[in-house]
C-alpha cells in the first residue's frame, strides 16, 4: 500500500460502507465457523442430533490417527502438484494466447470453456470417460500405449488421474487472470525487449513473469485454496478417497466423516485443523512473495 492521502476520513461512513459485507460474512461465515469450533469439542450422532461434550478428544484422536496423518500428507502433495501443474499449464497456454496474432478471442474462449463446466458435472462425465474398464478415453489410451490403466486399484495412478483432472478444471480460471495480466504489460516494454532480440522463452522468464508476479502470487494462493477445498467433488465422484487412502484429501475425509459416517463433531475438529493448515500456508506464501515478487514498474 502506498501512503497516499486518503480523500475521506469519516470513520462512520467507512463503517456504513463495510457493514453489508461484514454482516453477511459474520452471519454466514463466522457464525457457522464459531459453531464449528464449538462442535469440535463435542461427540455427535448423525448431524448433531445428540451432543456430548468431550473436550479435546476429537483432536487427540486425530493427532494419533495414522489415516489422518496420511490424509494430511496426501493433501499437501496434491496441492503442490495441482498448483505447479495448473500454473505451468495455464501459463503456457496464456502465453500462446498472448503471442498469437490472429483469432485470439476465439482461441481464448475455446481454452477457457471447460472452466464453465461445474466441477460436480465434470467429475461425473470424466469418471464415465476414464473408467478403467469401460471408459472411452481409457480404451484409446490403452490401445495407443499398450499399457493397462487400472487406476481403481493403483494408488499412485488414481492420485495422478485426480491431479490431471483437477488441473484441467482450474485452467480456465488461471488463464483468465494470466491473459489479462499479460495484456496489461505496457507495449513499450515488450518492444524494447524485442528490439534487443530476446527469445520467446527468455522473454517470458525474464520480462513477463516478474511483471505479472502479483497475479501469479494471487493465483498461487487461490489455487492452493482450490486444491485444499475446491477439488472435493472430484474426489467424491471419482475415487472416494481410495485406493488405500491414496486420494483421501482432508476436505473429502471431513465431508465423509460428517455426512457419511455421522461424526459431525470429529469433522468439525478436522475443519478447524484444515483452517489452521491453510492459513499457515497462505501466510508463508504471502511472506515469500512479499520478499521475492517483483513489483517494479
Amino acid at each position: 500500500m502506498s501512503d497516499f492521502t486518503k480523500p475521506y476520513t469519516s470513520a462512520t461512513q467507512a463503517g456504513l460502507l463495510l457493514v453489508p459485507t461484514l454482516v453477511v460474512l459474520v452471519a454466514f461465515l463466522y457464525y457457522p465457523a464459531v459453531e464449528t469450533l464449538r462442535l469440535s469439542f463435542f461427540q455427535t450422532l448423525l448431524l448433531g442430533t445428540k451432543q456430548q461434550f468431550v473436550g479435546l478428544d476429537n483432536y487427540v484422536a486425530l493427532a494419533t490417527s495414522a489415516e489422518y496423518q496420511k490424509s494430511i500428507l496426501v493433501s499437501f502433495l496434491f496441492a503442490a502438484a495441482v498448483v505447479v501443474g495448473a500454473l505451468v499449464a495455464s501459463l503456457f497456454i496464456s502465453y500462446l494466447l498472448f503471442e498469437v496474432k490472429a483469432g485470439a478471442s476465439g482461441y481464448l474462449l475455446a481454452a477457457i470453456w471447460p472452466y464453465a463446466l461445474p466441477t460436480a458435472v465434470a467429475g461425473t462425465i470424466l469418471l464415465f470417460m476414464l473408467h478403467p474398464t469401460l471408459g472411452i478415453i481409457t480404451h484409446y489410451l490403452e490401445a495407443l500405449t499398450g499399457l493397462t490403466f487400472d487406476w481403481f486399484t493403483s494408488g499412485p495412478l488414481a492420485f495422478f488421474v485426480l491431479v490431471v483432472v483437477a488441473v484441467w478444471k482450474q485452467l480456465g480460471y488461471n488463464i483468465i487472470f494470466l491473459v489479462a495480466a499479460l495484456n496489461n504489460i505496457p507495449e513499450t516494454l515488450t518492444e524494447s525487449a524485442q528490439l534487443d532480440g530476446v527469445g520467446r522463452l527468455t522473454m517470458l522468464y525474464r520480462v513477463y513473469i516478474p511483471l505479472i508476479s502479483p497475479t501469479l502470487t494471487f493465483l498461487v494462493v487461490m489455487n492452493t485454496i482450490y486444491a485444499f477445498f475446491g477439488a472435493f467433488p472430484l474426489v467424491d465422484l471419482m475415487t472416494s478417497g481410495g485406493p488405500n487412502n491414496a486420494t483421501n484429501l482432508l476436505i473429502f475425509k471431513l465431508y465423509r466423516d460428517a455426512f457419511e459416517f455421522s461424526s459431525l463433531g470429529q469433522a468439525s475438529a478436522e475443519s478447524m485443523i484444515l483452517f489452521g493448515i491453510v492459513s499457515l500456508l497462505m501466510y508463508v506464501q504471502l511472506r515469500f512473495s512479499d520478499r521475492h515478487a517483483h513489483y517494479g514498474a
Binding site: P7, T9, S10, A11, Q13, A33, T36, L254, A258, A267
Partner: peptide, 29 residues
C-alpha cells in the same frame, strides 16, 4: 479511500473467510 481505525484488521478479517471449508459450515448454516 477512507482513513479509519483498524483498517488492516478489518481487511484481514474479511480475507480469513476464504479459509472456512463449506461442507462443515452447512449444518449450522
Amino acid at each position: 479511500y477512507y482513513r479509519f481505525p483498524y483498517e488492516r484488521a478489518v481487511f484481514t478479517f474479511i480475507l480469513l473467510t476464504l479459509l472456512v471449508p463449506v461442507p462443515v459450515r452447512i449444518v449450522p448454516l
